[in-house]
Design a protein around this nucleic acid. Structure first.
Length: 414
RNA sequence: GCGACUGUAGCUCAGUUGGUUAGAGCGCUGGUUUGUGGUACCGGAGGCCGUGGGUUCGAAACCCAUCAGUCGCCCCA
């Protein structure tokens, strides 16, 4: 055993200080908005049987192929740390028999795990907030979750930094036909395809659509387009989504190349990406009509989204204030009871306070100044003798000696 | 998973073509001031130079490996 300093697991970070408070604010804002839309909270376990994700995310998806945090537990069961939240919620719906009673609206938040190469905005343990709407598959549900996303982003004050992109990838049958066609198309133009997309051609040809390689983008200009493969009701539903969003003033751009990385999606897909970097999704989701069925339930359609807390955090520039209004400074341990008593009274008035136990006025004031305290209450020999308290405003430097009653009067007026 | 760059004190970084006991600023700490903070001045602590190997008389510096971070790709929230 060496004396090497211990560190976190790669891609996993300690969250503390302003970052913690920012994350808490984001979650609080999310809870507020989701609750106003009558989504109810649900916590599913951080681990699931690997099957839950294998059956839903798709064998060819990168998440399953290389990013799952999977291991065998002591009973030799294959367990996976959840890479995303939707599959777990869907599983819970089935496990608890909630599918009998629709619609069901849930929100969740918590850590997710993906075994990826860490970089900016991409961690191995990261936090998401998300919500899911299980119902009858109406376009109104799509609009409802997008509306919730819209208000969430406004509440966070980052709506100006993002744009909403939407698309439809149709239902399974239509999509199959479309995939067949683009496969043909790209096969004919194999030579012009980028090497990355060549690999995607067999595995997941849909992904070629959102390729960033210039040679692919050129090919895409004359490629078949999904909308020509959709059935009438699929088109109608998507048109309804668009017109409803327009009518309530949620602007979006249509992106026919927006496809999602997870197999369970169908029909409407959407993404809020950064204005300054449109590859970077802050909040993303879509409809998934086969997910519950894949997990052995009935065919219940759902729609939802998830947002990365750390990615949102990076957009919020304002640091939450963590100021401490009051410190109590006894100059001698003998006065602790007196000071504890006052601290308790402050507590009952919901005033954050801390007792400094240097028993050294100078050190205490120095420390109080360092942590940016507004008021210092000093209890020393003179104060104790007269059962008074010295009230010192550290910003102005002014100081008064007050009775306890006067003190609480003064604090109330501040 | 692929490619590039980086790793020296708690933090931000210097460290000349390899050469004695590795530096600065900020921070921390003690004092000038034994009941008054912020300012000033004077002291102090704190580093196996990410880790492991190699080259060399000699390595923070050069080579290899490994770990971690950053950036790009893949992918994604």
């Amino acid at each position: 055993m060496s004396n090497k300093k211990i560190s976190t697991v790669r891609g996993m970070h300690d969250i503390y200080g302003t970052s913690f408070f920012k994350q808490r604010d984001i979650i609080e804002s999310f809870i507020k908005v989701a609750s106003l839309f009558n989504f109810t909270p649900m916590n599913t376990p951080i681990m699931e049987h690997s099957e839950v994700f294998l059956r839903t995310l798709g064998d060819s998806s990168d998440v399953v192929m290389k990013e799952m945090y999977s291991f065998f537990d002591k009973s030799d069961d294959s367990i996976t740390l959840r890479p995303e939240g939707t599959a777990g919620i869907a599983r819970a719906l089935i496990s608890n028999g909630f599918t009998q009673n629709l619609p069901q609206k849930y929100f969740y938040y918590g850590p997710m795990f993906r075994y990826e190469r860490p970089q900016q905005g991409r961690l191995r343990q990261f936090n998401q907030v998300g919500l899911e709407f299980f119902g009858k598959g109406s376009y109104l549900e799509d609009c409802e979750v997008i509306r919730a996303a819209h208000h969430f982003l406004i509440d966070l004050g980052i709506q100006k930094d993002v744009v909403l992109k939407i698309n439809t990838i149709g239902k399974l049958d239509s999509r199959k036909n479309f995939i067949k066609e683009i496969k043909n198309y790209f096969n004919k133009n194999k030579k012009k395809l980028s090497s990355d997309s060549l690999k995607r051609l067999d595995r997941n040809p849909l992904r070629i659509l959102d390729s960033k390689a210039p040679e692919d983008k050129e090919l895409l200009e004359t490629a078949p387009i999904i909308y020509n493969f959709l059935k009438q009701e699929e088109i109608e539903s998507f048109e309804n989504v668009k017109s409803t969003l327009e009518s309530i003033g949620i602007s979006f751009t249509l992106d026919p190349y927006l496809v999602r990385g997870l197999d369970y999606y169908s029909d409407t897909t959407f993404e809020y990406t950064l204005k300054k970097n449109d590859k970077f999704a802050v909040l993303a989701g879509g409809r998934y009509d086969n997910l519950i069925k894949e997990l052995g339930g009935e065919k219940i359609p759902g729609v939802g989204w998830a947002a990365g807390i750390e990615r949102i955090e990076n957009l919020i520039l304002k640091n939450p204030s963590i100021k401490l209004p009051i410190v109590l400074i006894p100059t001698n341990e003998k006065y602790m009871n007196y000071v504890l008593n006052i601290s308790n009274k402050l507590y009952f008035k919901n005033i954050k306070n801390q007792i400094l136990d240097h028993f050294n006025l100078k050190k205490s004031l120095k420390y109080a100044n360092k942590i940016n305290v507004k008021i210092a209450l000093i209890i020393g020999d003179e104060e104790f003798k007269k059962t008074k308290i010295s009230y010192k405003n550290l910003e102005s430097g002014s100081q008064f000696t007050l009775t306890e009653k006067e003190l609480f009067e003064k604090i109330k007026n501040e």
